[in-house]
Simulated scan of single mutants.
Amino acid sequence: MDFDFDEERFRITDSIDQTYNYKKIGDFQTEVLISRNSPIRLQKNIIAAIKAYSLGYKSIDYVYKKYSDYWFTDSDSLEETNIKNYMDVLDYVKNYVNTFLDLLENLDCNEKLGLIVSRAALYRLQSTFKSILLLMSRNQYLESMNLCRVILEQCSWAFCVYTKEHEEDIFSINPLNCLKDFKTFYTPAGRLNGFLSNRVHISPEVTPEYLQIINNKIIVTFNPISYRYDCYYSILSVTDMYCSTIEYIFRDFINKFYFVYKYEKEFVLFKEREFVTQANIFLDNVRNSINNEIHR
């Protein structure tokens, strides 16, 4: 049986982060789109030119000297830090997921039905990753974590069916019932499942996080700041899980390993995975930016 991929392959591309590569500067009359990496002095010169033009001045010198110190505030700096954190994680997740998508695409393992359907299930998760990253770029953290559960369930299911050879054995397995067996390989799955369940299920205990009463008015916060860290933790965790699962299931067809290794006769997770080490650095950066935002 051959495994054919759609010619219009769906990749996690740079289309997600175009909004973050540029920003608008100017005033209520005129705005300019400029790279976020542009020097601050250049950005201030552009703003001064826009404001000088609006005021009818022939030179930007007066406007620049009098007002330029007020144009970039602490709030702007915090926003830039948050964007940098997102871009760092976006690039990191994107590079790993795309690398493993390439691996799945080039595997030669079309003999067993279980391997074929596992491969298909894991391959299609690229759209789920892209959706999560897109939602994160819009600060939709709760919705992003819901989709992280989808990746957890699909990885669990792929793990449970890859050894099966008959259709009835494969499609009778419910993804919701696969976690117990999956934990025998990917031990963090149980903790991650509990974490996601606690965060995405709106219970009375977490109501104060998103609902407040101020001056007799009900104020709803759709994405509390506390969800930001949880969301970054979730996407990095499921990325580690995704790559680990692919290496384990298709270990007989892979020559180089980054997430699993052979211990005696079994393949097991590396305890010190390079991916996790770098992910923890990203999470520290996110935590620090949240603390700075809270205490500004």
Rank of each mutant, 00 (worst) to 15 (best):
L236V: 07
F159W: 10
S75I: 03
Y162W: 13
S127R: 01
N280P: 01
T30R: 08
L115H: 08
N292G: 11
N82Q: 09
N280L: 10
D6M: 05
D102A: 02
Y141F: 10
H201N: 04
F250N: 14
Y67I: 02
Q212C: 07
E205Y: 07
S118T: 05
N85W: 07
D4F: 06
A279W: 03
N285D: 15
I12L: 05
V206Y: 02
K84F: 13
V268P: 07
A52Q: 10
C160Y: 02
M1L: 11
Y20Q: 08
K164N: 15
E266F: 11
D6P: 02
I116K: 00
Q29W: 10
K130Y: 13
T19D: 15
S15G: 11
N288A: 06
L78I: 06
N21W: 04
S75D: 09
I151A: 08
F5Q: 07
A121C: 09
V276E: 13
D76K: 12
F195L: 07
Y70T: 04
E293I: 04
I12D: 01
E80T: 10
Y210H: 10
L133S: 03
V206F: 05
Q18L: 01
L115R: 06
V276K: 10
Y263T: 04
F253W: 08
G190H: 03
S54K: 00
Y186W: 04
